[in-house]
Amino acid sequence: MTRTTAQRVGSRFLRPGALWRALGRRISAAALVLWGAASLAFLVLAAVPGDPVDIMLGPHSTASPEARADIRERWGLNLPLWQQYLLALWRPLTGDFGISYQQQRPVTAILAEQLPHTLLLAVVAMALAIAIAVGAAAFTRRGIFRSIVQLLEPVAVAAPTFWLALTLASVFSYGLGWFPAIGGNPVQQLVLPAIALAVPLAGTLGQLLRDGLDEADRQPFAETARARGLGTVGLVWRHTLRHAASGTVTMAGTLFGWLLGGAVLVESVFARPGLGRVALDAIMGRDLQVVMALVLFAGVVFVIITLVVDALVAFLDPRTRRGGDRA
């Protein structure tokens, strides 16, 4: 889907008026997506069993009914559901993301505090995964290395992230002591969690890339290039990688979402601060404000990434650049 769309968008790069229209369409579609996501999140939270007041008070609380009613009123939990829904949609538009009732402080403060950690982890893991995938796919085109890597890739993809994280922590952190269990400088803290996240990703990306490269190799232009004397590496770097990359870059967009999910597991194991744990606690604790803010954040990120990815694809794939023939 994206390739066809990208081709359409790519060819329209040549006509400015149409570019704005395309952009406008994208933005309205994005707004729709955000609304849908927010509504879905609200519905989901309304359905989670358990009274938020109970969650706030903790197990074996002996709070009186009056005290509970008081808390409920203060948080607007006794308003009819549709009113709560409208408020939940309206407030973020005014920049008011509410107060987390678990942590009793503004949601924006929590996000601002925890987001950088997760973002850093995700970006580093992504970069690592891409580096490994490119290295594995591009530099092992033939021979025994190819077979070995081909064997390892499915294993990397299949390994559950939390198991990887646990094992890495157990061996390299608690066992050999190469990395601190808690504390340490940011680089030390990142290495093991980033590896745990990057490995399955690298496996998937590597497989995709390899398939893309194989496919591109069979194209006529590859034979021509080889006939002109271009070595394997040059071929890979200049031509086939671009072709294969466009497919991979498309996947990379949705894989970033996977990274955020994986961050939950990794942050739990390594006791890292980050949005993952915040999200987990908020879902379990029915902390409406936090979940809504996270949903909106995820939606915005997704939309941005999609736009960027489409632009990148249009740039990378020579076919769309020329705005002409489809392959």
Partner: peptide
């Protein structure tokens, strides 16, 4: 697609 997979499953 906008939501991370794991979190959707968690919420459900």
């Amino acid at each position: 697609l906008a939501f991370p997979e794991l979190l959707i499953a968690l919420a459900v």
